[in-house]
């Protein structure tokens, strides 16, 4: 449960910078177009950011050899823009009737006169007048991708992820360590013992990675092992009674499962008692702690599942 909480915290740590980055695009009028590459942009009269033509771009070439009429090069920036039809077409002045009052001057201005005229022509939403035609207003820097910024963002996210992973590992390490030293629960490698609160000397068994127990428990385990090798095989029922083994379950095949919780504190040792079908002799064997069915236990000793053991063809 606690691991899931830590995982959630790390995920939040990674996701939060992403959320902040999405809100970092707003700029005021006095700010440069790009902090990282300020020389690559300039501002026009309307305050829009325009990318400066990079050195080496040949502005005399058409934007597209296949469809030159679809694109037009911006004389100021050298960039190519797609030509879109204007929602309010401009009619050449020569084709329009003269007006005595000149009241329609704004509407009848010729295309060629627009560059020098201070009059504004409305090209429609999302388009601007560029050269002799209305084009999509992609000179706004907010519409042009800045790959440098994207690259930096990706790198920043990678660093955040790496830092988050390291923090997660460190927290998990210290959390496990805290659990081992403060909790009395059984771990796979170490068995922590709590008795009456007194400090007890511990004895490491033959396999130091298996269990660490008190001297008292180690002595009881040795007695149990010795008795199991002697009495457990010759008189298994007496052995079970002597060591306070509790009956758990029996099967149709006559196998019986027992549990003993008095040897190692916090752990139930499982034993299976079965009868040899030929000789009728009783046998008693330990089985892994997770086994809860006597047939599963005998099947385990033969490398079989409980069902395979029950379907066995012949026993002798």
């Amino acid at each position: 449960m606690s691991q899931k909480i830590w995982l959630l915290l790390v995920l939040l740590l990674v996701i939060t910078p992403l959320t902040l980055l999405n809100n970092a695009e707003a700029r005021s009028a006095d700010e440069p177009c790009s902090y990282l590459n300020p020389s690559a942009f300039k501002k026009d009269a309307a305050g829009n950011c325009i990318r400066i033509t990079p050195a080496g771009v040949n502005t005399s070439e058409p934007c597209s050899y296949l469809k030159p009429e679809k694109y037009q090069r911006d004389p100021n920036t050298g960039l190519c823009h797609k030509v879109t039809p204007s929602p309010q077409p401009v009619t050449p002045a020569a084709a329009m009737p003269n007006s005595p009052s000149n009241g329609g001057l704004n509407y009848y201005l010729g295309v060629n006169d627009l560059h020098t005229s201070s009059q504004q022509v409305n090209c429609g939403a999302g388009t601007v007048l560029r050269g002799n035609a209305c084009v999509v207003g992609i000179n706004d820097v907010s519409l042009t991708p800045d790959y440098t910024i994207y690259g930096n963002n990706v790198m920043f996210l990678c660093i955040c992820g790496a830092v988050g992973f390291i923090v997660y590992k460190l927290v998990r390490y210290f959390h496990n360590r805290w659990n081992r030293t403060h909790n009395s629960r059984i771990d796979r490698d170490t068995i922590e013992l709590t008795t009456d609160g007194r400090t007890q000397s511990s004895v490491v068994l033959a396999n130091p990675n298996t269990a660490t127990v008190t001297a008292e428990v180690a002595k009881r385990i040795r007695e149990y092992e010795n008795d199991f090798e002697q009495t457990g095989q010759s008189d298994s029922e007496y052995f079970l009674v002597k060591w306070n083994a509790e009956f758990i379950d029996s099967s149709r095949k006559g196998n019986e499962l027992y549990g003993n919780s008095s040897i190692i504190p916090g752990r139930i040792l499982k034993l299976v008692k079965y009868r040899d079908p030929s000789t009728g002799q009783l046998y008693l064997v330990h089985v892994p702690d997770g086994i809860n069915d006597p047939d599963d236990g005998v099947g385990w000793t033969l490398g079989l599942s409980g069902d395979d053991y029950r379907r066995m063809g012949g026993e002798a």
Binding site: L205, A211, P277, S278, H286, T301, L302, G303, G314, A316
Partner: peptide, 22 residues
């Protein structure tokens, strides 16, 4: 042990095992 009849075929011989809980 009692004698066991085994039909024609191929077989593998496996030994019983036991668990050392300690």
């Amino acid at each position: 042990h009692n004698t066991l009849e085994i039909p024609k075929g191929h077989y593998i011989v496996e030994h019983q095992r036991r668990y050392n809980p300690f």
